[in-house]
């Protein structure tokens, strides 16, 4: 029989906290304070202002009214009359953002895949080029596309000069373009149109799409592709059954990220979209800075836009989890 000394079970002496731990805490607290002052407070203010009240002919005052939210969903004159103007604008914001983000990811995916098959040096050159294009501001890009698509000096003029317009008329496609609102009786026209709006928005986020997809595609195990080929899969079958399922999560994630990013597009919409098809972002600016100077209503629209983005991100997360659970 062995007697075990009680001291053997005694708790080890408490270790003194090193000095650097308290230093780290201080830094974390400082960062936390900065976040609170510059992120949480302005955000809280926007939410608070969204319940404020506009004073006719003057600014606004603090209040707690749901009038702004009512105006957004059913119009200011409700219940006498109902208008869905702002819901419609939210609808356009969602429509443009969905199509443009899907278009950007759908076109960036094959490009990025082919890029990852290039030599390291060639990949680096492409990435530098794409990163450089990110430095262009939205205003600059829209200006470029504005010129490219303008009726007098852009593609329509080129169509006319090269005889492409006449050819389109001869083969009958011109009428189709007119039906789609992409031509007037004389020539093709791209402004204003949903086509130009979505194309420009898609171009705006295209480099982001490539950069978001690049890590997943460059890590893609080439032996999976080769294994599929040795089992009789043609290139398209390989893409459908191996590559796409392997990068499904990054593709869904990138699309949602770009979608949320595009919900707030402003310049491209004001330049390319028909005023009747403007979005919530434009409407917010008009309320806050435009003729109406109605900050509370602008704040309401901003909050709703934010909630919409959050809802869609949540849906994306749920979608990922649902399909991830099946793995």
């Amino acid at each position: 029989m062995t007697t075990i000394d009680d001291t053997a079970f005694a708790a080890p002496p408490a270790r003194s906290r090193p000095n650097w731990a308290s230093g780290t805490n201080l830094i974390l607290m400082a960062i936390g304070a900065v976040l609170i002052v510059f992120c949480i407070v302005p955000f809280g203010l926007v939410i608070a202002i969204s319940f404020g009240q506009k004073i006719e002919g003057a600014a606004w005052e603090w209040a707690f009214t749901f009038e702004n939210y009512q105006r957004f969903f059913v119009g200011a004159e409700w219940p006498d009359t109902v208008t869905f103007l702002y819901l419609q604008r939210l609808g356009y914001a969602l429509w443009y953002a969905v199509i443009a983000s899907v278009l950007a990811v759908a076109t960036a995916l094959p490009f990025t895949y082919l890029m990852t098959r290039l030599s390291r040096a060639a990949q680096a050159r492409w990435l530098v080029f794409l990163l450089a294009s990110l430095s262009l501001s939205e205003v600059f890009i829209v200006m470029g596309w504005d010129i490219l698509l303008s009726n007098r000096s852009g593609l329509p003029a080129l169509f006319k000069a090269t005889g492409l317009t006449d050819w389109l008329k001869d083969v009958g496609w011109f009428d189709v373009l007119r039906e789609w609102g992409l031509a007037n009786p004389r020539n093709v026209k791209f402004k204003p149109s949903q086509f130009a709006t979505i194309l420009t928005m898609s171009y705006l986020v295209w480099p982001y799409a490539v950069i978001l997809l690049y890590p997943a595609l460059s890590r893609l195990d080439t032996s999976l592709i080769e294994a599929a080929r040795t089992m009789g899969a043609r290139p398209f079958t390989v893409a459908r059954t191996v590559i796409l399922p392997s990068v499904r999560l990054p593709v869904i994630g990138s699309t949602f990220l770009l979608f949320v990013f595009l919900l707030g597009t402003y310049v491209a919409i004001t330049v390319f979209a028909n005023p009747a098809q403007h979005t919530t972002a434009v409407s917010i600016y008009e309320s806050v800075r435009g003729a109406s100077l109605n900050a509370p209503f602008g704040a309401t629209q901003a909050v709703i836009l934010l909630i919409t983005a959050a809802v869609f991100l949540g849906l994306g997360q749920a979608l990922n989890r649902a399909s991830g659970g099946a793995r």
């Binding site: 195990d221 032996s223 999976l224 080769e226 294994a227 599929a228 080929r229 040795t230 089992m231 009789g232 899969a233 043609r234 059954t241 191996v242 399922p245 392997s246 499904r248 793995r327």
Partner: peptide, 20 residues
């Protein structure tokens, strides 16, 4: 003949099984 037309079965070093 490309690989997909050869009908040669191959086992890869890392097995290359489809995780999905």
């Amino acid at each position: 003949q490309p690989a997909h037309k050869r009908k040669f079965g191959m086992v890869f070093q890392n097995f290359a099984l489809f995780p999905h």
